[in-house]
Amino acid sequence: MSNQTPVIELRNVDKSFGPIDVLHEISLKVNAGEVLCLLGDNGAGKSTLIKTLAGVHSPTRGQILLDGKPMRFSRPKDAQEKGIATVHQFGGTFPLMTIGRSFFAGVEPTKGIWPFKVFDRSKANQIAVKAVQDFGITRIDDGDRLVGGLSGGERQSLAIARAVHFGARVLILDEPTAALGVKQAAHVLRIVNEAKRRGLAVIFITHQVMHAMAVGDHFAVLIRGAIAADFRKGEKSREEITDLMAGGETMSDLEAQIEGYMETHDGHPPQVASQSDA
């Protein structure tokens, strides 16, 4: 579209764990104020890709560029200091800690002089609650509540608010809407849009095409660690995206397979989980 320098760019990134090659030749760009949706089946390598961006893993080959400058992260903290904030799948918050403490984990506000540094609880609580409320979660009003007492959507919102608060320029979200109900998911999507409006570059991973289409400007589909398709909003229909996400097989093929199975098995669908039928 425009000629602006992408906030973050990957050039021919490979990642292997010993003999296992997980990512091959990944090249991607994300501009400020844009959402890149990363799609793909289970095990396609989405989490591995974003962990590489977040400094959890370092790429085996290839380059990561931030504002056009090559970067090398050896620890998650390095990526964070450069403004790359990540909300990892299955994580990011601590159930048995209070909202204020969890929000500031690793970057605690202190008062007093060394060595008598004091964790500033009231300041932490106040900032945390305000940051979450600014994203529209007004139900959170007490920073002393335990994170484990929040709903899944509230926890995700807290993690996103935390990332944005600490000056992120790139926000990476690994399946933030998985396991959420319709309403809670809508809330998280609104927060993603709000982050985009504030000019962040967002990378959003999801298995739900509807969620991707609600926020995405740009889509990349990963199949077995390689980019199988890379397109912009409006260039592909919902059905086409779904087919790509199923790993190249079309949805109608899958449906035909299931129907074929049912014909040869007295109308029973294939057993997925054990069901107790009479």
Binding site: A54, V56, R75, P76, K77, Q80, T86, H88, G91, G92, T93, F94, P95, L96, M97, R101, S102, F104, A105, G106, V107, E108, F119
Partner: peptide, 18 residues
């Protein structure tokens, strides 16, 4: 806070820069 975070979820604690 670091001690609680490490015990609560070591992976997230490391990712948070602790």
């Amino acid at each position: 806070n670091w001690i609680f975070a490490v015990g609560g979820d070591p992976e997230s604690a490391r990712n948070a820069g602790i």
